[in-house]
Design a protein around this nucleic acid. Structure first.
Length: 878
DNA sequence: ATAGGGTTAG
């Protein structure tokens, strides 16, 4: 009895019954079911014990303690197992003779191995069984498979499983489910098929598992087949199967079918309701999820924690703060608030609904915080644009010894991206490398996005090139990054590379089109247009808007308008693009018409669309109209004008010769004018030959942007036009002293899909001689017809001949000449220049359009010039 | 004995 007390205190303390030695031997049941049922073990802890059973237990323990040889080994093994003493049980199995062991002993020890997940012991028992030559089939085989599955050795489980002669459906389910758990869905499906070949009848468990396999692989047709099959077998009304079917349809976004299953489910339980809510929410239909919840309440279905969490997520998505609050207090009242996950969701709901102070409050009161709590809080700050606070909270989290996970890392990278904090972003990158998180695709994609937003495409590219696996987001992030960072050639190059490796989507197209637009790469743009048509991407509004913008910026306004007209739902961006398009092509009144149409269609203009319309007015010299828009913006739409709006007005005043008004306007501005604003006025001074004001304005510009050579050149040209050569010389010396170099003008033209770039003064082109002689002939013809070249723009104080040569070497002239030589007659010549077109080139281009009967579309850094029959669409406003 | 619903991100 002493030993009993030491080996099994539990047994002693909960068994008040006196033992009876006489009953010891006789009461042993002939089968081992008492021993293997876990319920019999738990029942020991209840007060109303079955009399004989309890008595038996006590006596068995006594038998062990006395080491009696009379008691059979199997009973001892079972007894140890029941006590949870795996070590002794296994020792006993290993130390027994083959003849002493039977099925019951093996089974009970395997059962315990499974329960304690001890693969090591399980393997030992397995080898004893094999060595003893016991037949591994039937119940013993099943137990072995069960043990290996529970211990996580699926391979060994399968080996045993495959040798079994007639596996019960339970084992097949076990195996299929285990394959699904380790995400080897194909093997699960394979087993399911084999099961059918063997004619083993599937049951509700089988269907749940196999549906999971099909849904995870996106095998919709197969899943639908299972639906029909199980229906035929009479499992259609089983609620677990119904729930699994709903999960299958929802994962594959076939919401109607899921809803149908739900509607036809006769015996819905809380899981069915929760599935329905969660599925709606996961598919972006938060409102419908809430609707299901209300229905659930009105039918009096019991709500559990998962329900509350699902509905909280719906509130987060739909911004339903009031329902979220109600749920918060409801859960507290019904004591569903014991779980940390609940508070994480409440916190996230407040933060996503923009109530950051409530979120902070919840966060502060939480007794326990997990990574999720911190991450939700950080993400909340980032969403509100409080990147500094987010970064600070991240540091606090580190001080609290909470390790960030990939979610935290992506949130904080997003904060760095919004903030432009390249330095902090690099620190995080270091952390990512040190913690091996760079194997996460999600992390790498966010990392690239951060670098792209912080303007470092080199860093983004190094992440990109080190990624062994890239998804479409990776490609899109890089292509979009190049586009947005003014590296359109890189964007196009990567796009070509991508097309060989994976299929672009709408996002890719919307990211690469701006690159075509900025290069005016019409041919490439048209190829992409073809891609859009073949894949039906035009219905993506981002794609449609980007496409219209591309045609606008490639100079094909007519096509842009046709496409704009077929956009089914035009949004603010569509309208802004077309207004700006009309503007830069010099169609001011059309821009105004479009702008008014937009307002009529119920779309409220924003700050940016006002910039478009004001610039449109400016490019067409529509001063009165511009004033009306400027006032309307402030009065009717309460939009506070920004620098860009003032810049438009100054530009327009200056162009139209209202130089003094412009000067006064700048001085009265409520915000500090920048170099661009003064620069516009300087431009105006040049057009209207006001050298005195130009000098005053130029000094302001030079103060603000001393490194920008463009302004020095502008002033030099003003002096040159006034023939103040002394001043030109001084300015040129000043440029030289400051080590400034003139930003080289370059122009390009696309021919047969190839872009040819011309730099001013460069005569290394293979066709240079031909181009030069063509330009000479044209110049001669111009002189004959009474044009005199505008020498002033040469910026070279040399003799007249040299000046003329320099003018001939301007990049836009070279590109136009190249176009005439290489494009079929009658074809429009489209040239793009990185700076503003020079006046002499402008004159010459007009002349060429007349003599060679060619339309010339010249895009400079400011606007389009459509030249036809010697007339330019800009009518002098540029 | 085996199954079905629940948090954070681009």
């Amino acid at each position: 009895m002493l030993m009993l007390a030491t080996t099994s205190p539990n047994l002693l303390s909960v068994s008040p019954l006196p033992h009876n030695d006489n009953e010891t031997k006789s009461s042993r049941p002939s089968n081992g079911c008492f021993f293997s049922k876990p319920s019999s073990r738990t029942s020991l802890f209840s007060s109303n014990l079955d009399h004989s059973c309890a008595k038996f237990r006590i006596s068995a323990s006594v038998a062990i303690s006395t080491n009696s040889e009379v008691i059979d080994k199997n009973a001892k093994i079972s007894k140890y197992c029941e006590m949870g003493n795996l070590k002794n049980a296994v020792e006993l199995v290993c130390g027994s003779q083959k003849s002493e062991l039977d099925l019951e002993g093996y089974c009970s020890v395997l059962e315990l191995c499974a329960g304690l997940k001890s693969l090591q012991d399980g393997k030992r028992v397995h080898s004893v069984i094999c060595n003893n030559g016991a037949e591994v089939d039937g119940p013993l085989g099943a137990k072995l498979v069960f043990m290996f599955v529970k211990c996580g050795d699926l391979r060994e489980a399968r080996r045993v499983f495959d040798k079994l002669s007639n596996g019960k459906v339970f084992l097949w389910n076990l195996m299929i489910n285990e394959y699904a758990k380790v995400r080897n869905f194909r093997e699960g499906i394979h087993l399911f098929r084999k099961m059918q070949e063997l004619g083993i009848q599937a049951n509700s468990y089988t269907f749940s598992c196999i549906l999971k396999c099909f849904s995870s692989l996106g095998y919709v047709r197969e899943g639908e087949w299972v639906h029909g099959y199980l229906y035929k077998l009479g499992f259609g009304s089983d609620n677990t199967v119904g729930n699994s079917l709903m999960a299958f349809y929802f994962k594959n976004r076939i919401i109607e079918s899921a809803r149908k299953v739900f509607d036809e489910l006769s015996d819905r339980d809380v899981i069915s309701w929760n599935s329905m809510i969660s599925a709606y929410v996961a598919n972006g239909l938060a409102e419908k999820g809430v609707e299901i919840f209300r229905q659930m309440l009105s039918l009096g279905v019991d709500v559990d924690l998962a329900t509350v969490i699902n509905v909280l997520m719906a509130c987060s998505d739909g911004g339903n703060l009031s329902l979220g609050r109600a749920l918060h207090s409801y859960a507290i009242k019904t004591c569903l608030d014991m779980d940390i996950m609940f508070y994480n969701n409440v916190l996230d709901m407040y933060s996503k609904c923009g109530d950051l102070s409530s979120a902070t409050q919840v966060f502060g009161k939480m007794g326990q915080r997990s990574v999720v709590s911190w991450t939700s809080m950080i993400a909340g700050y980032v969403r509100e644009g409080l990147s500094d606070e987010a970064i600070e909270l991240f540091s606090e989290m580190e001080r609290n010894d909470v390790s960030p996970d990939v979610y935290t890392i992506t949130s904080i990278l997003h904060a760095c991206a919004c903030n432009g904090s390249l330095k902090k972003g690099r620190d995080i990158h270091k952390y990512i490398r040190e913690h091996g998180m760079d194997s996460s695709l999600f992390v790498c994609n966010t990392l690239m996005d951060m670098y792209a937003k912080c303007g470092s495409m080199e860093d983004a590219h190094s992440v990109f090139s080190s990624m062994p696996v890239k998804d479409i987001v990776s490609w899109n992030t890089m292509i979009g990054g190049y586009s947005k960072n003014c590296l359109p050639n890189e964007a196009l190059k990567l796009f070509s590379e991508m097309q060989q490796k994976s299929k672009p989507d709408g996002m890719t197209i919307a990211s690469v089109l701006p690159a075509c637009a900025s290069l005016a790469a019409l041919n490439r743009g048209q190829e992409i247009h073809g891609h859009i048509l073949r894949n039906g991407y035009f219905s993506d509004r981002y794609v449609a808007n980007a496409l219209v913008d591309m045609y606008v910026k490639c100079g094909v306004l007519v096509l842009a308008r046709l496409l704009f007209d077929i956009i089914p739902i035009k949004d603010l961006i569509s309208w802004t693009v077309i207004v700006a398009g009309y503007g830069m092509h010099g169609f001011g009144s059309e821009a105004i018409t479009a702008f008014n149409e937009m307002r009529k269609s119920g779309i409220k203009p924003d700050s940016i669309s006002f910039i478009s319309i004001l610039y449109a007015c400016s490019h067409s010299g529509l001063l009165d109209e511009a004033w009306r828009f400027f006032d309307s913006m402030r009065n009717d739409y309460s939009i506070v004008p920004k620098l860009e709006h003032y810049a438009c007005m100054v530009d327009l005043l200056a162009r139209t010769g209202n130089l003094t008004k412009a000067y006064k306007f700048i001085n009265k501005m409520p915000i500090e004018p920048d170099a661009t604003i003064w620069g516009s006025l300087l431009c105006g001074c040049r057009i209207h030959h006001d050298v005195k004001l130009a000098e005053k304005v130029a000094e302001r510009v030079f103060e603000l942007e001393p490194e920008n050579t463009g302004y020095y050149v502008l002033l030099a040209n003003i002096y040159a036009e006034a023939e103040k050569w002394e001043e030109v010389k001084k300015l040129r010396e000043r440029i030289g002293r400051q080590g400034l170099k003139k930003n080289p003008g370059c122009s390009w033209i696309e021919i047969k899909g190839k872009v040819q770039i011309f730099v001013a003064g460069n005569s290394s082109h293979p066709q240079a001689t031909k181009i030069e002689s063509l330009l000479k002939r044209l110049r001669l013809k111009m002189k004959e017809e009474g044009y005199s070249p505008k020498m002033q723009y040469a910026l070279i104080n040399a003799d007249e001949m040299e000046k003329e040569v320099a003018l001939c070497g301007h990049s836009e002239k070279l590109a136009i000449a190249f176009g005439i030589l290489n494009l079929p007659p009658g074809k429009t010549i489209r040239v793009t220049k990185n700076l503003r077109v020079c006046s002499d080139c402008h004159e010459m281009a007009k002349f060429i359009s007349k003599t060679s009967r060619r339309e010339i579309v010249l895009r400079d850094s400011n606007r389009f010039h459509h030249m036809k029959d010697g007339i330019c669409s800009c009518r002098g406003f540029w």
